[in-house]
């Protein structure tokens, strides 16, 4: 990966879920700025959606639907039934992760169709079709993958406006993503401890879900905040020693939004 330019939207406030028109304006303004910088070069645009805006589920299936459409419909049905979401208003993308024992693992991601429409409108407005729109956790997983030790693990990430934890199994397959918007008290010890407690509960719930499940390593990465301090908080609640990973940082004085920071740092 080569980073030629790193920038932010110039706003310090967060974009709340449901505020689609404002989100569209924000992205379009950022894209117009970027389009001016790249000129006439071909650049495949990739957009990372903040984790709390995306619902992620890994289904364990006895039989895997053959077509991509059927897999999407299965994920839509599952989210509607178990998470009580309005299935018809969701856009779904899936990936087959392979087999675990006699079960097929299917990763499904869902995002609000209105939100995606707003994002697409922003790209269309800037005249730049996006090559990839994906959950930020997926970008992070791919970005940090070479640094992960073999075996299962968990990555806790602190973004300016949310935090998330992603878990993967012994074969390196993503099994769970959980995220929360932050409450605005950025980077104090109390917040790190609250995050660490929620991460512990998430890991415990995953591990107790099946006898073969374990989490052997803990990683922490902060694009906003102190990864070492977060690691300390995680170490207090875990037997495993947390490893701090670093993300490219924004230049000083730039405003930040998680959307822009992850879009810049992500790689596929």
């Amino acid at each position: 990966m080569r980073i030629e330019w790193l920038g932010g939207s110039g706003r310090d406030d967060t974009v709340a879920p449901g505020d689609c028109s404002r989100l569209s304006d924000e992205i379009e303004a950022l894209l117009r700025d970027i389009a001016g910088r790249i000129g006439r070069r071909y650049v495949p645009f990739q957009l990372a959606l903040p984790d709390p805006l995306v619902d992620a589920v890994v289904l364990e299936l006895e039989e895997l639907p053959g077509s991509s459409k059927a897999r999407s419909e299965l994920v839509r049905w599952h989210l509607a039934k178990h998470l009580h979401l309005d299935g018809q208003s969701l856009q779904i993308t899936t990936q087959y992760l392979g087999q675990s024992g006699d079960r097929h693992l299917l990763l499904g991601l869902a995002v609000s169709a209105d939100l995606l429409e707003a994002v697409n409108a922003a790209f269309a407005g800037a005249g730049l079709p996006p090559a990839v729109i994906d959950m930020a956790a997926c970008y992070r997983h791919n970005y940090f993958a070479p640094q992960f030790e073999p075996g299962s693990g968990a990555l806790v990430c602190l973004e300016p406006d949310y935090w998330s934890v992603s878990l993967w199994d012994q074969s390196g397959r993503l099994r769970q993503v959980r995220s929360r918007w932050r409450d605005g008290a950025l980077g104090n010890t109390g917040e790190y401890r609250r995050v660490a407690a929620e991460v512990e509960r998430t890991v415990m719930a995953y591990v107790h879900g099946a006898p073969e499940r374990r989490i052997e390593r803990l990683y922490a990465a902060c694009s906003s905040g102190n990864a070492d301090a977060l690691c300390e908080a995680l170490n207090e609640r875990s037997r495993e020693t947390c490893t701090a990973l670093s993300l490219p940082s924004l230049p000083h004085g730039q405003g930040t939004t998680s959307l822009a920071a992850i879009a810049s740092a992500s790689c596929r």
Partner: peptide
């Protein structure tokens, strides 16, 4: 090596 993710909403 973790499984690389290739999901895409675009």
């Amino acid at each position: 090596m973790p499984v690389m993710l290739r999901t895409n909403f675009s």
